Structures are given as C-alpha cells and as structure tokens.
Amino acid sequence: MHRSAGATMAWNVFRFCTALRGLGSIMILLVLSIVGVTYYAVVVYNYGPALFAGGASTLLALVVLLLFHFLLVMLLWSYFSVVFTDPGSVPPNWNLDFDEERGETAPLSGLDFNSQVNSQQSIAHNDTGHPRARYCRKCNQMKPPRCHHCSVCGRCVLKMDHHCVWVVNCVGALNYKYFLLFLFYTFLETTLVTLSLLPHFIAFFSDIDIPGSPAALATTFLTFVLNLAFSLSVLGFMIMHVSLVSANTTTIEAYEKKTTPRWMYDIGRKRNFIQVFGNDKRYWFIPAYSEEDLRRMPVLQGLDYPVRTDLDGQEL
C-alpha cells in the first residue's frame, strides 16, 4: 500500500511538471494579450484621442503616453530577457570542494564524494560555514553551492530561486536581475495605468454620459481591474524579493530555513545588492551587465559566492 501511494504521488508530480512545461507559449501569449488589451484601453481609446483635445487634456495625455510607452518598452525588454536567458547550468564534469587551510578549491576525495552522494541535505557546508559541493541523483552530477534541481526544467539550476510559469523559465543566477526588473517595471506600468484610468472607472459608475461603444467601455473597465490587481500583487511579490536580495538569499533557501540564525552568504546589504545588480550603476535599471562586471565578478556566473568571515553575530 505504501509503495503504491508513493508511486501515485510521484506520478502526480510528474504529470504536474509536464503540465507546467506544456504551458510554454500559452503563458507568453497571455502576457502579450494583457499588454494588448491595456494598450488599446490607454492609447487607442482614451489618451490617444485626448492628444487632439487641446489645453490641459493634451498635456496630460502627452505625459501619460510618454511614460506608458517608456515603461512598456522596459517591461517587455526585462520580460523577454528572463524568458530567453538561461538561468545557469552546471558545467560538465564540475567538481569542487573548499580547502579550509588554503582557502582554495580542491578535488573531492573518494570518501567525501561518497558522503556527498549519500547526503540528501539541501545546503551542505563544513564546520567553518564554507560551502561544499553536493550531488544530484537525478542529473548524476555534482552541484555547486546554492544550486538546486528543477523538476519542471528537468535539470540543475545555479542559484535557483523558483520556476516561474509567467516567464516559462527558471529564475536563477543568470536572469534573477532581469526578473526583478520585470517586477519593478510591471509595478510602475500597472500603477500608471490604474491611476490614469481611475477617472474613467469612476465615471463608469456615475450618471455621466460617457462616449464610446459598450465594448470599448467594457475594455476600459476590465483593464482598470486587471492592472489594479496586478499592481497590488506585484507590489507584495516585489517587497518579498527586496528582502531576499538584502539578505542575499533565494526563495528556496528562505523556505528551507537555511538563513537562520546567521546566513553565511549575507555579506552586507550593499554587497548583497551588487552581487545581483553589478557594480556599474549605469546598468542597474536595464536587463544587462557591463563587460567589466562580467569579467571581474565571478558571482555573476553563478558558481562562486563569497561567504562571510564573521559568524559570531557581529553586524555587518
């Protein structure tokens, strides 16, 4: 009976992961459909015609349309950067251990290797808090620190945060910054749309005679509700990820409670932020890294993470 229940659970999980893979282009089309409906309501129906109204209406429409198009470009740029950027894969035949005395990398011994294979811990480290290599039974390979296996993608992902159905991809070391920018610009865009359509939404429930076809009015109403809902939900999600970045942890690591009482990768808020967004401030708000940062910051490659040297509770 126990074996049958276990097999059923494994089969259900497999079917669930297969279903998530199958969403694929459907989710991308859904996102583009929401963008299309929003574009029609804001640009085509409401603020586009207002450009020719004259006076303050023209100025307001110009400001709204300029901000709307700028944020839309940044949103789509960030979104497709997350979709098409590999979150980070384990290099072939990767093998790493940390030598405590030399502070360098060294091959795993046979005893250590067998110990790692038999261990099912999510985060392995030695007594000094240094990261240790782990073994993935599904991929049959060693895993770098902070790497996790994604059942949806069917492979190990470097510094995996979560698998996001909206971007049809894992969020990991190489596209986490792009995901955060996607949240940021989505929040700004949906907030702008909500505020710009608020007067039209209020007028919808008043006795004012609103020009336009019923379909156009319904589209405006739907757009307002959708963007308000997305704005509030993305705000909560963004606040959560800001706290994760400030502590240099991921959603998986926080869920596994590996960040308490002292998280060895938390090296201070400023340096934690730089590990995700890079040193070059010119690139902080665009989904890209400078060549200098990619060359001088191994952490951006997802394999090598500095650890804190003070594990005695001293505040950084």
Rank of each mutant, 00 (worst) to 15 (best):
A5P: 15
G6R: 13
A7S: 13
F16R: 05
F16E: 04
L23P: 03
G24Q: 09
I28P: 08
I34N: 09
Y39I: 11
N46C: 14
G48D: 04
F52S: 08
G55E: 02
A61S: 07
L72Y: 06
V73T: 14
D86Y: 00
S89G: 14
D97Q: 08
F98L: 11
A106F: 14
N114A: 04
S119T: 14
D127K: 12
D127C: 10
K138M: 10
Q141Y: 07
M142N: 03
R146G: 03
C150G: 01
V152D: 05
R155G: 15
R155C: 15
W166N: 00
N169G: 11
A173G: 10
L174W: 01
L188A: 13
E189Q: 15
E189V: 15
F201K: 02
F201Y: 03
A203N: 13
A203E: 11
I208L: 03
P211M: 05
L217K: 12
T219N: 12
T219V: 15
S231M: 03
L235P: 06
S246Q: 08
A247N: 08
T260P: 14
T260R: 14
R269M: 07
V276I: 11
G278V: 00
N279C: 00
Y283V: 01
W284T: 04
W284D: 00
A288L: 00
Y289E: 00
E291I: 06
L294R: 00
L294Y: 01
V299Y: 02
L300G: 01
